[in-house]
Design a protein around this nucleic acid. Structure first.
Length: 970
RNA sequence: AGGCGCGUAGCUCAGUUGGUUAGAGCGCUACCUUGACACGGUAGAGGUCAGCGGUUCGAAUCCGCUCGUGCCUACCA
């Protein structure tokens, strides 16, 4: 049954057949077609449109993944493209291999980033969010989102990614907001979320707390100041060391190590804090490091995390001296309202004047910057919400330790483990207006907190009606950490119908969890039952902790409570959000620099695509995506792959040209739609050879993709298509395709058989290439089926398997021998300077009567040999050494002879050089063969190989020497 | 301060459990506009595998050290 393809774009190959491939003329059309036809929506059954046996939907074989949601504020960068290329290659490969394949796209609301974006707009308009008010501001952000929020997804559509657009989500969608609230409330009820005053990373620019991960450390050369603090009783002093003298205004103690004998007598005494005269104690605490600075450290609990800990241990007060903008907040003090760095200068100057500044030494230390705004982070004491992380981390560690989640490359397992074991509680509150508002209400009367799924009208503790909702919103990563299950309808199914009109995916019927099954009785969302856990997460290591680790923790935590589709309890093994994580490299610029806007070295994928075509860029990224190392993006390589696309295009033109010729000769050319090729015992050598190579290439590509070796898969298809199909097979087929309208029937029948084989091979090659280069293969494939293909897209056909093609090992060996012979003849032509246009005859001599396969092959394929070598005739003769130019190759015993005068000095030079090479090789081989230890310990096949090599090299050496001696004297 | 990685042809990179003469793309040289393709064809040149030492019959591959380089994590003021 042919699908209705009226909606398919017009085919450029059918129209003009331009010589050069122009990606822009076709890519846009197919990108739109794929989206418009919903070809990759899982809810859209399309099994009937596939090749008969290619796609029996097997529920056990599913392939599900989530697109790491880009920020709505984002623009597509090359890293996204690498990520999507890899995901799409895998998705297409799995889909074509018969798996139920779902790839869910979406965008992230990106709290800080988006709020900053809109605030900049407001600034330009001369207003502020504070002037607008919270609600109006939120409306404004939604407005912005509806206008610009799809930009990145629109860009993504050009990449050809086969995502299910019907499932597209936004992390602030109602259904996801409900889920976020549910998750928060449950964690709170379980005692895993708490609120408290702690030192957090405060960004004075963004005016919010940020998590540890959002602080980037930068090494800076600063100063370590030594300041003298006098004793209150005037009997002496102590010198402390600090990098931040301005915080001394908030000092509440000075700590020394209890074991530090220098200060033993001072512990318990009081100091008069310089500049203020406030009295503070000297305390003993292990934190003070006798080796560092002076061994005495000032304690400022409100402005330093360590000092905060000391303060807790010693019951010291917290003295907050700074406001949220990092200005000194001490009304009445001369430093009041000074910026922190201005205050530092003034304080140092004042201390100097008092003679209390003892020293200022150069000092390297890491300074914390805000990931978003690059402001220097100010540790600040404030009330925040935290997730008690240890219980979650324990399960997450176990899940990976037990192998329920596999990391590729494996080294990241260690990184993950290391981080997970040293994890701190997660600060999840943000003082922003854009995000999931924390579902907690503060009571004005009893000061208690009511956490609730629904908006409460009264306080749960004292029933007071004076309650107000928490103003903080949640860290963006809190909601994205829940995605693996929230996108599939967690917590329950009742919200499902509201966001997915299409309902339960058709081909999943009968799968546990489908409507009517046991799962629905337990009200497990059908999608959750069907798709959780996902198979794979593909992402960069930059969000390993931000996102991957959080998904694992939250997935293991929440999904353990959700029964399996059959109603049985879920184990950790099935609670994990994904079975595998593939971490890819970072894309850098050609100079290996990390791309950044400020450096101006950002590679715009859209620009690259419009210059080289999406297929070429995809292929480049895939072929450079070897694990472990970063990718230095190479335009030169992209150019090379554009040439590859052009090569494919022209090979197709050649095929179509011959199909046309066959038609003109009144012959019919059909395509076998099964995707498999049956045995061809009587087929010509090149057909048997290329089918075997096709089988081997399919095996290699399948193997490489299963191991995430995109580079190896890409190079296998590249080498096969260009190096074998085009360079050899096609050149030989050329000789067979002699369609002659008036010619004999037999000749035409033979030509047609070759053409049929060619079509089958080409069809398979296109399918093999399509995950990597979906656009050009789609275009050619439709043309190949004369725009009436067996499926709506090549992406819905069968991916070539090794067993789909008949193999013939002897044919491969024969072909290789023939190739070697041909290369030898060509090289010889060149070396003895036969002009390109001159077609002289050659003679091929067998030098070894007992083993003359090559000579026999040359005889059988004399015609082919002559054409491919551009010689007029090939004559097979018994062995004979003549004074003419001769050449032989090591792997078979033939000699190729050209009857031609040669350039004697040039020939002598070449032979001398060769002789030296053979001699060296011979010596090396003989040295090993006479090494007793080697002979005793080396495996047999190695020794055997070396012997063979030695024998062959000896032969070459002798021949070359003889030839050299036979040359006329200079 | 800990941890991870990298150093192979002029450039960008492959090189699987150690094994016969270390590969690819781009670039380079020579010749070729042969009816698929000059975004092409054919044939070439080009490498002491960062250095030193060790294990081994045998090392680009395993181990140690040195040098160079990139990154991640980190609450020593």
């Amino acid at each position: 049954m042919k699908p209705d393809l009226e909606s398919a774009p017009e085919n450029a190959l059918q129209a003009a057949l331009p010589k050069a491939y122009d990606p822009s003329s076709i890519e846009q059309r197919w990108a739109e077609y794929w989206v418009r036809e919903h070809l990759f929506d899982v809810a859209t059954p399309h099994a009937g449109a596939r090749a008969p046996d290619a796609h029996t939907q097997t529920p056990e074989r599913k392939f599900t993944q989530l697109l790491p949601p880009p920020n709505v504020t984002g623009r597509l960068h090359i890293g996204h493209m690498l990520n999507q290329t890899e995901m799409d290659i895998l998705t297409r490969w799995h889909r074509m291999s018969g798996d139920t394949t779902l790839w869910v796209p979406g965008t992230d609301h990106a709290g800080i980033a988006t709020q900053m974006m809109v605030e900049r707009q407001l600034t330009a308009e001369g207003t502020t969010r504070q002037a607008l008010g919270r609600e109006a501001f939120e409306d404004r952000v939604w407005q912005w989102k509806s206008l610009y929020g799809n930009a990145i997804l629109d860009q993504m559509k050009r990449l050809g990614s086969t995502v299910d657009w019907s499932r597209e989500y936004f992390t602030m969608d109602d259904r996801l907001s409900i889920a976020v609230k549910e998750a928060f409330v449950r964690l709170y009820e379980q005692g895993l979320i708490y609120r408290g005053s702690y030192i957090v990373n405060w960004c004075p620019g963004c005016q919010t707390a940020v998590s540890d991960l959002e602080v980037i450390h930068e090494d800076q050369l600063g100063k370590l100041y030594e300041i003298r603090y006098p004793l209150a009783d005037g009997t002496g002093s102590i010198v402390i060391a600090t990098t931040r003298p301005e915080t001394m205004l908030g000092d509440v103690a000075v700590a020394v190590n209890p074991s530090d004998e220098r200060y033993a007598g001072l512990i318990g005494k009081e100091l008069a804090l310089p500049l203020t005269g406030r009295k503070i104690p000297i305390i003993a605490d292990d934190w003070a490091n006798p080796e560092f600075g002076t061994g005495a450290v000032k304690v400022t609990p409100a402005h330093d995390p360590n000092d905060f800990a000391i303060g807790q241990r010693h019951n010291l007060p917290n003295l907050n001296i700074m406001d949220t903008t990092a200005h000194i907040d001490l009304p009445g003090s001369p430093y009041h309202s000074l910026d922190r760095y201005e205050a530092r200068k003034r304080i140092l100057a004042d201390l100097e004047a008092l003679g209390l500044l003892v020293a200022a030494r150069d000092h390297h230390n890491a300074i914390g910057l805000c990931d978003r705004s690059k402001d220097v982070i100010e540790p600040r004491l404030s009330k925040q919400w935290f997730v008690k992380i240890q219980p979650l981390a324990d399960k997450a560690i176990e899940a990976v330790d037990k192998g329920y989640i596999k990391f590729t490359p494996d080294q990241y397992r260690k990184t993950y483990d290391e981080w997970m074991k040293n994890i701190h509680d997660w600060c999840i509150s943000r003082q922003l207006w854009w995000g999931h508002r924390i579902p907690a209400w503060h009571c004005a009367d009893c000061a208690q907190i009511t956490v609730s799924r629904e908006t409460p009208s009264t306080c749960a503790h004292c029933a007071s009606a004076s309650i107000t909702q928490e103003t903080d919103v949640l860290d963006t990563w809190f909601s994205s950490g829940l995605l693996p299950f929230t996108v599939f309808g967690w917590p329950n199914s009742k919200d499902l119908s509201s966001f997915r009109e299409s309902g339960v995916p058709g081909q999943l019927a009968g799968w546990g969890g489908a409507a009517g099954g046991p799962a629905s009785a337990l009200s497990i969302p059908p999608d959750l039952a069907a798709f959780y856990p996902t198979q794979l997460l593909v992402t960069g290591f930059d969000i390993l902790f931000f996102w991957v680790a959080r998904m694992i923790m939250l997935g293991c935590h929440f999904m353990l409570d959700v029964p399996m589709p059959d109603g049985s309890p879920r184990t950790l093994k099935n609670a994990v959000p994904f079975r595998e994580v593939y971490i890819h490299a970072l894309v850098r610029d050609a100079e290996r620099q990390k791309m950044s806007k400020t450096k101006g070295n950002v590679i715009d994928p859209i620009d690259i695509i419009s210059r080289f075509g999406t297929d070429a860029v995809r292929f480049t990224l895939a072929s450079m995506a070897s694990p472990g190392t970063d990718i230095a993006f190479s335009e030169a390589r992209t150019e090379g792959n554009r040439a590859f696309a052009n090569k494919i295009w022209n090979a197709a033109r050649f095929l179509f040209m011959n199909i046309d010729r066959a038609h003109e000769a009144g012959l019919d050319v059909s395509v076998n739609e099964s995707g498999k090729v049956s045995a061809m015992a009587n087929a010509p050598l090149e057909t048997r050879w290329i089918l075997t190579r096709l089988s081997q290439t399919a095996a290699e590509v399948n193997r490489a993709l299963a191991a995430y070796r995109f580079d190896e898969a890409a190079s296998a298809v590249y080498q096969f298509f260009w190096g074998e199909l085009c360079d050899w097979y096609l050149e030989i087929v050329k000789l067979r395709l002699n369609f002659t309208p008036e010619g004999g029937e037999t000749a035409n029948a033979e030509a047609l058989a070759s053409l049929h084989a060619f079509v089958q091979v080409f069809d398979a090659a296109l399918r093999l290439l399509s995950p990597f280069m979906p656009f050009i293969t789609e275009e050619i494939w439709h043309a190949l089926y004369n725009n009436a293909p067996p499926a709506k897209s090549i992406a819905l056909t069968r991916f070539p398997q090794a067993a789909d093609f008949p193999t013939d090992e002897p044919a491969v060996r024969e072909m290789e021998t023939l190739q070697q012979l041909i290369v030898t003849v060509r090289a010889l032509r060149k070396e003895i300077g036969v002009p390109e246009k001159e077609a002289t005859p050659i003679r091929v001599f067998s030098t070894n009567a007992a083993n003359c396969d090559a000579a026999a092959l040359a005889r059988t394929n004399a015609d082919m040999l002559a054409k491919l070598c551009r010689v007029s005739a090939v004559e097979i003769a018994p062995s004979a050494l003549t004074g003419e130019s001769t050449r032989s190759t090591p792997s078979f015993d033939v000699e190729v002879v050209y009857a031609r005068q040669i350039d004697v000095p040039a020939e002598r030079e070449r032979l001398t050089k060769d002789l030296a090479k053979y001699e060296k090789g011979l010596q090396a081989a003989d040295r090993q063969l006479s090494n007793e230890a080697f002979m005793a310990k080396a495996p047999a096949h190695i020794v055997e190989g070396l012997r063979k090599q030695s024998t062959e090299t000896r032969l070459l050496y002798d021949k070359t020497k003889a030839a050299l001696e036979a040359l006329p004297p200079a």
